Simulated scan of single mutants.
Amino acid sequence: MNNKVLLPETCSAVVKTSFGSIGVLTQFGKVKAIHIFPGMFLEKMPHDALSAEAVRQIQHYLAKPGMRLDLPVDMDGMEIHRKIWMELMAIPCGEVKTYGELGSILHFSPKVISEACEANPLALYIPSHRAIAISGPKGPVGEGDPSHPLVRIKYWLLKHEGFLHV
Rank of each mutant, 00 (worst) to 15 (best):
I132S: 01
L62A: 02
V5D: 13
L124E: 00
D74L: 15
G139N: 08
G66L: 09
L25W: 04
A119V: 05
L62T: 03
P110H: 11
S12N: 03
H81P: 06
P140D: 08
G139Q: 09
G142D: 08
L69K: 07
Y99L: 12
I80S: 12
P8F: 05
I22Y: 02
E53W: 04
K4G: 03
P46C: 03
K159C: 12
D70Q: 10
H160G: 06
V31R: 04
V112C: 00
I113V: 15
S21Q: 02
H35R: 12
M40P: 00
G29V: 07
L122K: 01
G20I: 05
G139P: 09
D74Q: 14
E115M: 09
S12W: 01
Q27C: 08
S21H: 08
A119D: 14
I153F: 13
H129D: 02
E87S: 11
S135E: 15
A123F: 04
H47L: 07
I113D: 00
G94W: 01
I58Y: 08
L50E: 06
D74E: 15
P65H: 06
P121R: 05
A123E: 10
V112N: 05
G144Y: 07
E118I: 11
V96I: 10
L42A: 05
P38G: 03
K111M: 13
K159A: 13
C117I: 06
I22T: 05
Q57R: 08
G23W: 02
I84E: 00
M89E: 12
L50D: 08
E43N: 07
E9H: 01
F19R: 02
G103T: 08
L157H: 06
L42Q: 07
V5G: 04
F28M: 03
D145H: 07
P72W: 12
L71E: 04
P46V: 09
R130K: 15
G20H: 00
E53G: 01
L6A: 11
Q57N: 11
R130F: 13
D76M: 09
A54M: 09
V73Q: 05
K138A: 14
A63S: 15
L71T: 04
H47P: 07
I58P: 04
I36Y: 10
G100R: 10
D48Q: 05
Q59I: 09
A123Y: 02
P127D: 09
R56M: 02
G162E: 07
A116K: 01
I34Q: 00
S51I: 05
D70S: 15
R130Q: 11
A52M: 08
S135T: 14
D76R: 12
N3H: 13
V5L: 11
P121N: 14
P137T: 09
M40Y: 08
L88G: 04
S18V: 11
G66Y: 13
L150T: 10
F108C: 02
L124V: 09
H47K: 05
A33S: 05
E95N: 14
P127T: 02
